[in-house]
Design a protein around this nucleic acid. Sequence first.
DNA 1: CATCTGTATACCTGCAGCGGCATATTGCAC
DNA 2: GTGCAATATGCCGCTGCAGGTATACAGATG
Lengths: 122, 122
Amino acid sequence: MDLVKIYECLCDRTRLRLLNLLAPGPLCVCHFQAVLRESQVKISKHLAYLRARGLVESEREGNWIIYRLPVKPARALRANLACLQDCAAEEKLFRRDLARLKKLGPGLVASGPCGCAPAGRK
Amino acid sequence: MDLVKIYECLCDRTRLRLLNLLAPGPLCVCHFQAVLRESQVKISKHLAYLRARGLVESEREGNWIIYRLPVKPARALRANLACLQDCAAEEKLFRRDLARLKKLGPGLVASGPCGCAPAGRK
DNA sequence: CATCTGTATACCTGCAGCGGCATATTGCAC
DNA sequence: GTGCAATATGCCGCTGCAGGTATACAGATG
């Protein structure tokens, strides 16, 4: 994987927040919306940007689309994601995001269908 | 230091090459020109870009301008520079640059006036 | 002073990304 | 099938950056 491409993905705050949230485990789009409190379009486009460059992977699960960090990341990517996680731990915004994520659902991480919507899985 | 700003600096190949060359020690602009074999303007502008954002520092020494990595880098910057060095060691282009740098002058790193020009220090 | 060398800056063009609005797509429920 | 929820995509305007050419600046030399 090309180093420059990786850094291009990392040089936007929204994308950093998305990747930061993915570190603990897979999430669906509505989680990102709930935590970042940004428009659906904005989040969706940044996720598409990341996916097109191999920084995240996605999978459909019923109505939802689950995003995750690559299962087998290239060495350079792994190193930089680790570095990001390390650095993000020192910035308020990222910590707040993670805190909000935890509030969303305790067993959320790596759990089944997201159940994020008001309608939820019904 | 803002993480996003750091990554903005890292998302250009020329700038990565410059930073990679600075890892062993300070250099003057003509060294970058000799190693990268890019136009003077291109290199100068990228160095200005990096300096404006605190990724490098510069100091005049007679006719030459010496660039170096920050003496007291912020934690996030230090982490990412270390990561970059690690990743760069695996890419041919960066290794070739370092090899060329070594050929330029054995005692070059951290030495005195650069002596790079034909006229040199005379 | 004039001149040369090393380096920086101004101005321009082209291109890519960001964010917004509107709309499309996919799958579920009825 | 209809309708709705979750998500993606197309188009537009704006901004910022990359790289080029020409020019300016600073210091050394004579």
